[in-house]
Every structure is written in C-alpha cells, then in structure tokens.
Write a protein that binds this DNA or RNA. Structure first.
Lengths: 211, 211
DNA sequence: ATAACATTTACATTAGCATTGACATTTATC
DNA sequence: GATAAATGTCAATGCTAATGTAAATGTTAT
C-alpha cells in the first residue's frame, strides 16, 4: 500500500513524468529546480520523499536516472497475504492448530506457500546446515501425520522433543537424518516418533546472514 | 487476556482499522475527531485507553503512527505487509528498476525485513550453498552501493553479470568469495565491480526443499 | 461516587517545504 | 588523459501549518 502524496509531491511527480515522457531522461536537479521555481536541494528532498513512498526509484548514489514506478495495485496482494503462527514449543498430543505457545505470527506470501493451517517453527542449531537450513531460520511447515522418504519433516520424539530432520522409513525403524557431518543419524522405533508436518519452505531474516 | 472494550472504544478502534486499511496510515486526531463528530482531545483520550488495554501501540511521545495489535500483541498483518519487486535478471545498462524487467512481486513481513526499497533476486546456482543459500532461493536485498567485509552482497561484474557472493575489500582488489568448495574466489579491480545491494534475508519456497 | 466521555484552550513538537553553501562525483571538452 | 563544467549530495537552518499533549472542567451513565 503506497502512501498518499502531498500536493507538492504530486506536482513534482507529474512534472517528472511529463519530462521523462518527452525527453526520455530525467532533467537535472537544477533544471527541474529552475522550471519549478524552487532550489535544487528542494527538488532533491522531494525526490527522496517520492522514493521513500515508492513512486520512483533511483539507482546509485550519484546516478541521474529516475524510474517512475507504476502502481502495482494491491487488489491481488490482499488475497496473497497469509498469517501463520510461529510455534514456540510443540506440545505432545495436541494437533498443530491447538498448540498454545505461540511466539507470534508471521506474514507470508500465499502464492509461494499454498496450503492451509501452515505453521512456522524457529530452527535451533545447525544440524540441517547442508540442506540450507540454518540456526534461527523459520521453517514453514504444512501439517502432516505421515511422511515420504527423503522429505524434511518436523518430528516429535518421545512426545516432547521437536526436531527438523530428513525422514527415512526402514523396515524396522525410522531414521531421522541430519544434514551436517557433525551430527549423526538417529534411529527410532515407530512409536517413538510422531510426524507433525513437512517443511515446505524457509524464511531467514537479517540475523545471522553474515556470520 | 485483554480487558473488554467499551462500546465507544470499540467504535473508535473499528474506525481506526478501517482507515488504516484504506490509507495505510492512521488519520490525525483532528481528522478522526471530525469524522467521528467529537473533539480531538476526546479521540486522544480514547486512544490512551486503547493503548492501556493493549489494543493499539504508539511510538514516541509525539509520533503519529499507530499500530493495531492482535490478541497476541503482534502488529496487525495489514500493517506488516510489504511488497517487493522480484528482479529477473540484472544485466547491462542496469535495467534493474525497469518495471518490465520484474518477474512480479513478493509479499513479505515488514517485521522481519525492515528497510525501504528492498528488492528480491532469484538465486541461480549453488555457489553460496554453505551460507545456506540454494539455487532458486529468493534473496531479499537492500539497495546499497558499498559493502563491508564479510557481507553477502549483490554485485554487478563488468556491468553485465550479477552475482551474489561474500565481499572482501583488499588493498588492491575486491574479492568475491563463494561459499562452496566447488567454486573459487574471484578477484577484481575496483572498477570491475559494482555493488548493488546487501542480502538481508532468504525466502525459499516448496521447490527444491527435498533435493 | 466513580469511570467513561466530552469540551475548550494553551502549548510543544513534528512534517513538509524552502534556502544556502560547501563538497563529491560524473560528464563533457579539449 | 587532464581540466572544467555540470550535476548530485549533504548538513545546517528557518518558516509555517498541521499535529499531538496536557490541564482544567463539565456531562453522563452505572
């Protein structure tokens, strides 16, 4: 949702559009300033405001190119917003939608994450590092009580410990395999493991991007 | 559990929600006052009551921003959505912000990705695998023309080839280091490399989660 | 009585817009 | 290439209108 423009900002934007349409390029600050009868720095300030409000975009620091951004319209965007709970701790025996300990909500793009009753889980540790899942990442999960081989799942072990691992079903046991040579595969009896969901995506924020 | 609202408080809250949904920002006290047919100080008092009951949150003393809170104390999703363009290819001539080059928009949570004028870039290849960035991931980036050592950046090489690598500045060259033993560091003269932004996050969809 | 709600008024703060001038960077010109 | 001109940036500053705050006070409903 773009913020509304003030009268002055609209005036400058209209002027820019007209100029760019006519000449193909943006006029210099001082040219614009003179034609708008204000100072060059005033134009620069308004341009900054227009950029902050996402009506234009500029390139590098001293670049002279300005792109006018069309309204992308948020009619469809409202249908794409999806709010999913971030689960703090998984409590045994409760289905996902009944989990109590929320750490809050996460907003995701429904176009990328289709499905219902999705939930998010904050990853603890680096056991899935080689699958591109790092400590503190948010794993987007779809609730499921079963899993196929090689899928990355959220599993509850001994009804208390939640973990994200790659799933393998063997004839007599379930193997939960980490993706990090520092960790080892664990094998469990069928009744020791409860599948809670399948990981369908990852959201990583600014934390820990640069070690 | 939050205290119940009075009829009047509920009315004002509904009004605020509607206004914020429509305009993206909270109306001024006097605007609201006029539309609710009361005085501006009355609105201020009700806002104070709403804040005490944790239905809204306001920033500084004289700040004009109001956040609507949900029952968990999170900011409402309508105030957290942020659309960012997905850049298809960064190529010669820097048409990076030319809208026709965009592959669409991505909806992200503003709480996780603060900052303005963000853009997303689809990762090609696995050269950053050990940094938890895989092929086809969407890298969330903040525009920047400079970088600090060890940061993961989007760089344009020889004005045509865009790449995501870890950045190192040496006395006589710039090193762009991949995070994958199958690839090698590349060193460039200063004028060969143009920094376009810093990677501040990753969004990975269902594709490629299970190799 | 008390809390919620309302008003009026004076005051403090902020946003938007403008200016100027020094400076860094790019572009043009020779 | 070197130099000059043009251009974008930044910081400091001032002004005005719009805006939020606070205090004193009155009204209404429970």
């Amino acid at each position: 949702m773009r913020l509304k423009l003030t009268q002055n900002q609209q005036k400058v934007l209209d002027y820019l559009k007209q100029k760019i349409n006519k000449n193909g390029v943006c006029p210099s600050l001082r040219t614009a300033a003179s034609e708008l009868a204000i100072s060059h720095a005033a134009v620069a300030q308004t341009l900054k405001a227009l950029e902050d409000k996402e009506y234009i975009r500029r390139e590098g620091r001293y670049s002279r190119t300005v792109h006018i951004l069309d309204d992308v319209g948020d009619v469809y965007i409202t249908q794409r917003q999806k709010q999913i709970p971030v689960i703090g701790h998984i409590t045994a025996g409760l289905p996902m939608y009944a989990q109590q300990e929320w750490e809050g909500h996460l907003l995701v793009d429904a176009k990328i994450y289709p499905g219902q009753n999705l939930f998010a889980l904050k990853i603890q540790g680096n056991s899935m590092k080689n699958a591109g899942i790092l400590d503190q990442d948010l794993a987007i999960c779809e609730p499921r009580q079963y899993a196929h081989n090689k899928e990355i799942v959220v599993a509850l072990i001994h009804h208390e410990e939640a973990t994200v691992k790659r799933f393998f079903l063997h004839s007599n046991c379930i193997e939960l395999r980490p993706e990090n040579p520092d960790f080892h595969s664990q094998k469990y009896e069928f009744e020791e493991v409860l599948i809670q969901g399948k990981v369908i995506g990852i959201v990583r924020g600014p934390h820990g991007i640069d070690d």
